[in-house]
Design a protein around this nucleic acid. Structure first.
Length: 137
DNA sequence: CTTCTGACA
DNA sequence: TGTCAGCA
């Protein structure tokens, strides 16, 4: 499956990514600072994004719009070392499916936090400001 | 002209 | 997040 290398191939500069994602350079760089995306660099230190990076950014954008903050996105997106319940699944095309948290699980976490009773240590606030549109909508 | 880092009237 | 500076 050498289709992966193409998706991970560093191709476009931040300017194009901006148009592709409707995000500002500021935001894109900001998310990188928080390790939400790690684009490659050219010899001149210019960022080069791959298709995967762009998709990643779109997912981040989506979550931001839903009211999830950086801390929350980190927990919802990929680099999930081990998900106790959600098993790593292989999809129909034998392509490794992304270990993303489902909407339902997200809501579950949100509800648990919003309802207060969060006794687990080291838990970070997933929501920004007011309890977001999860309950407004 | 485009991108990069750092900083904040 | 916007935006401006000063480089590369």
């Amino acid at each position: 499956m050498s289709d992966d290398i193409r998706r991970n191939m560093a191709l476009f500069p931040i300017g194009i990514v901006m148009k592709l994602t409707d995000l500002t350079a500021r935001q894109i760089r900001y998310y990188e600072q928080h390790e939400l995306v790690m684009p490659a660099r050219t010899g001149g230190n210019q960022r080069l994004y791959s298709f995967n990076d762009v998709e990643r950014l779109l997912e981040i954008k989506s979550l931001i719009e839903k009211g999830v903050n950086i801390a929350g996105i980190k927990q919802v997106l990929l680099p999930m070392s081990e998900s106790s319940e959600e098993a790593t699944v292989i999809n129909e095309q034998s392509e490794v499916k992304r270990k993303e948290m489902s909407e339902t699980q997200l809501r579950k976490m949100l509800k648990r936090q919003l309802l207060g009773g969060d006794k687990r240590l080291g838990q970070v606030s997933l929501i920004q400001g007011e309890l977001s549109r999860f309950y407004k909508r």
